[in-house]
Design a protein around this nucleic acid. Structure first.
Length: 608
RNA sequence: GCGCCCGUAGCUCAGCUGGAUAGAGCAACGGAUUUCUAAUCCGUAGGUCACAGGUUCGAAUCCUGUCGGGCGUACCA
């Protein structure tokens, strides 16, 4: 269903458009900046007055006179330089709330007018390495963006652009990072693999977590052996060449390690409550066969030229340190392809095969220039239609308490798994302290939901474009805008429902019989008004790809519920008031659950 | 050098195409509990929105400059 904000915007804009001389100034209806001004305010009169060179307050009077929104609002009030303040009628709030509760979604959510096919590129871990904090934001922000867009009725195609190939095999043994990967594979799957694996890990290589978890160690060992053992070095090189030539044996080894890695990532996705599966993995290697064609086509179109031995495209408007044109290098002087080439191939595939109307890239802000240039090249090459949107959704870094990028004491990236485990452990201690009487299973699942939820919620609640300081103490605090606070608010509602039986209150029946609400207390009305605005929160959150708008709404909701909870007895309320209060509880619980669970992938808990 | 992002309360952060007296949380102080979970609620105090100009009815928001910080800037992703 349409949000109140949208209804008002549409109806008031229509009236404003009819003002003589108006050139379609929008009403600019916004939530009131202050409760004293009512519920919504019209900001669009002043710009229109400017356009018409007339007095804004007089214009506001004219508009108010023609406005017919008495079914929704009290008489509009003109205030300040030309604002029009709107206050919702309690009857309208009550009616809308009942509608919302009976809406198909149960929550009054707006659907997109024109559903699109949207490709979302996110997470993108590298194979043969454990996921670390650097992957957290892309993974969870991307996940919630997908959920938001899907909810609006779009066709969302998740693309996990995993680093499963890159240029590493396009190069011969010359560069260490790439080489190490080749060495690793040779090391892992060369002769005597099983003995080596058993010796190093005490396990067979089938155990994915052991293999991947110890990759860093393997790299070190492999490097050492590479330097000291000519036979091993030779085997490494041969392996890489074989892989490039797509020899079946080498490919099989490669496939195996990709599989092990993906399984390992999947554990993290499951743990994080992220909706990504193997089917969404469409990594760099998927474009291998397309790369020569991409370069050839760019050359043919006269876009790609040779420069300093490399094949480059020079999109307009980009300059290097000396002010000379900056290239997008699509093929290196040694013949290898780069991530720009792969990204171009991916765009071609996503527009051509997946029929994307929009492609969203969820990567950190540092890749801004890269995508700007790649987008420019793709458009120049005609691989993207003019109306196809290419969006780079950026985010800041996760910092430690010292304000520097989060690292371990020894300067390594913090493993995602270890981070989450610590959060769970800390949550566990809190549960132990607050509610020692719970069963072991309950404690465990609560600690899990709270720990993971806290990490995710803290990330979501920050504006994604800014860096944020990671603090277990803050995210696990029971006070303030945190996951535990939200989950607690939910648990208290569920507790009321459980207690209802003892007091012989039939919650479902009372709610089902509701025809009109009886909203009397201020905190009831405030809660009701906020509940009917869930759709607005989703629209603004999805529109800007900003989950923090959603968490802000949810926190506001939980606070308003807590006020209501303090002021208004529910089960012991008089018969004329109880059904309304039960409905408020029910809708609040459903909204919190939907927001946390369905949109953010954070678990709610029945008791804590 | 050039480009992008950032600078808001003691701390951590919001502030949605420019809107009214800039908001939360934490910390501080004061109050509420025979409670449906106080992991709560209510209140008080706290700001030259880095700085200086400009645009206009109106600027934390847009423009210019200065200072401070982060990141990027041809064969890594």
């Amino acid at each position: 269903m349409q949000s109140v904000l949208n209804i008002l915007e549409t109806r008031i804009s229509e009236v404003m458009a009819k003002v003589p001389g108006s050139q379609g100034c929008p009403a600019l209806v916004r939530p009131a900046t202050d409760a004293r001004f009512g519920d919504y305010q019209i900001n669009g009169v002043m710009p229109l007055a400017k356009q018409l060179k007339t007095n804004p307050r007089k214009l506001a009077e004219q508009i108010v006179a023609k406005l017919d929104i008495s079914d929704i609002c009290e008489t509009p009030e003109i205030a300040g330089p030309g604002f029009i303040n709107l206050r919702l009628k309690p009857e309208f709030v009550a009616k809308t709330l009942v509608q919302v509760s009976k809406d198909a979604t149960g929550l009054g959510i707006e659907k997109a007018e024109k559903p699109k096919t949207i490709v979302v590129d996110f997470s993108g871990p590298n194979i043969a390495k454990q996921m670390h904090v650097g992957h957290l934001r892309s993974t969870i922000i991307g996940d919630s963006i997908c959920r938001l867009l899907e909810l609006q009725g779009n066709k969302v195609i998740r693309q996990n652009h995993i680093g499963d190939w890159g240029t590493q095999f396009g190069m011969l043994i010359a560069r260490n990072r790439r080489t190490q990967f080749g060495m690793l594979i040779a090391y892992l799957f060369g002769e005597k693999t099983a003995e080596r694996m058993t010796k190093v890990f005490g396990k067979r290589p089938d155990d994915a977590s052991n293999v991947i978890a110890n990759t860093e160690q393997l790299y070190r060992e492999a490097k050492k052996q590479y330097d000291s053992d000519p036979k091993f070095a030779k085997r490494s090189r041969e392996f890489v060449v074989a892989l490039q030539k797509k020899e079946q044996g080498a490919l099989n080894y490669w496939k195996r390690i990709v599989e092990l890695s993906i399984n390992e990532c999947q554990e993290m996705y499951d743990k994080l409550g992220v909706k990504l599966t193997k089917d969404d993995a469409h990594g760099e290697s998927a474009y291998n066969d397309d790369l020569p064609g991409v370069v050839a086509e760019l050359k043919k179109k006269g876009l790609a030229v040779e420069s300093e031995g490399a094949v480059c495209v020079f999109p307009e408007g980009f300059k290097d340190k000396e002010g000379k044109p900056l290239p997008v290098i699509v093929q290196k002087s040694d013949g290898a392809y780069l991530y720009a080439t792969t990204d171009l191939a991916a765009i071609r595939y996503r527009v051509g095969e997946l029929k994307a109307d929009k492609i969203i890239y969820v990567t950190d802000a540092r890749q801004g220039l890269h995508f700007e240039m790649v987008f420019a090249v793709a458009r120049k090459a005609g691989w993207v239609k003019p109306e196809t949107e290419l969006v780079h959704v950026t985010f800041g870094s996760v910092l430690g308490e010292d304000g520097k990028p989060l690292k371990t004491r020894s300067g390594e990236n913090v493993k995602l798994k270890e981070l989450l485990d610590e959060a769970i452990e800390r949550a566990r201690k809190v549960v132990e302290e607050k509610n020692p009487g719970l069963s072991e299973d309950e404690k465990k699942s609560i600690a899990n939901a709270v720990g993971i939820g806290a990490v995710k919620y803290a990330d979501y609640t920050n504006n994604r474009t800014s860096d944020y300081i990671f603090s277990f103490d803050k995210m696990l605090a029971m006070e303030g805008n945190t996951a535990p606070y939200m989950q607690y608010a939910y648990a208290r509602i569920k507790s009321i429902e459980r207690k209802a039986g003892d007091k012989k209150v039939d919650v479902k029946q009372e709610i089902a019989n509701i025809k009109n609400l009886n909203l009397t207390e201020t905190s009831e009305i405030n809660l009701a008004k906020h509940l009917i605005r869930y759709g607005e929160a989703i629209s603004s959150s999805a529109g800007d790809y900003r989950p923090n708008y959603l968490t802000a709404y949810l926190y506001d909701l939980a606070q308003k519920f807590s006020s209501f909870y303090n002021d208004c007895p529910v089960l012991d309320a008089s018969a004329d008031k109880r059904p309304t209060r039960l409905l408020l509880c029910d809708l609040t619980a459903k909204t919190i659950k939907h927001g946390l669970h369905n949109l953010l992938g954070i678990e709610v808990i029945e008791q804590m």
